[in-house]
Amino acid sequence: MSTATTGSRAESAAQDPDTPAAAPAGRRRVPWARLPGAALIWLFVAFCAFTFLFILLSSLKSSYNVLNHPFRLPTELKFSNWSKAWHDGGFGPAFVNSVLVVVFAAAGTVLLASPAAYVLGRNQNRLSGGVSMYFVLGLGIPMQIIVLPLYSIMAKMHLIDNLAGLIVLYIVVNLPFTVYLLMSFFASLPGELEEAAALDGVGPGMTFWRIMLPLAKGGLMTALTLVAIACWNETFLALMFLQTNDNFTLPLALVNFLTQQQFTGEDFGVMFAGVSIAVLPMLALYAWLGRRITEGLTLGAGK
């Protein structure tokens, strides 16, 4: 099969669910034969919708109502849950920490990865092939294998319980995927502009900065978004490397809050306000850049 010639056809078929490609089977069959399957899917969708609606609505209810009338809509909107979570629950400072970590880690990762991905993606030779493989290798190495030597290194550099240290770690662990993602992006760009720039005597650094980077804007945005999501939700490294509440990122603040609740009695309204603070930014990001996120995360799976 030659993907080069059929690729565009398959893609255009993919855009439109009603083409024969998207509906290869059973169009003319009795519709109720598919009903159980469709019902199952809608049930799944309903559960996902319920989860997030429940979290958001419960964040505005009193603890008593969350517990005793979980399915009822809030009777009054208790915004005090949010301010309690923000000020007393530790979610406010954690939100600030998370934003700091995410911004610097995402920017740092893309800043380091894009020049590397550019030279690897556009040079097709044995050396660049080997180096690419070396980066791809990192995709298969689980975090727990690198975390303990890193702990020792960071301890020696006094970077335990330090947000800057965590940012460096996040950059490192996101490098393999980001290089891999951007590499295929740079490889897919047309070469004419680059050649023209070379003939005009534009230096290679300038060519990259002024010509190739703007062309790759879509890929860079995807990379930034994906690293940001990964860092926003990351818990394992944060737990290993952060120790004091002042430095906690949102997932740790949530773990901490859940733990304390078990000692001090539970306020479910405040708990779900905290959960919302961790979840809402991701929902908003997904609503804004949904396609980009799903495509980026599933990229390469078909290769």
Partner: peptide
């Protein structure tokens, strides 16, 4: 498809 993707991008702790 977009909808059922949602749980994948939010925190496991949440």
């Amino acid at each position: 498809q977009g909808f059922i993707f949602l749980p994948h991008i939010v925190s496991g702790v949440a």
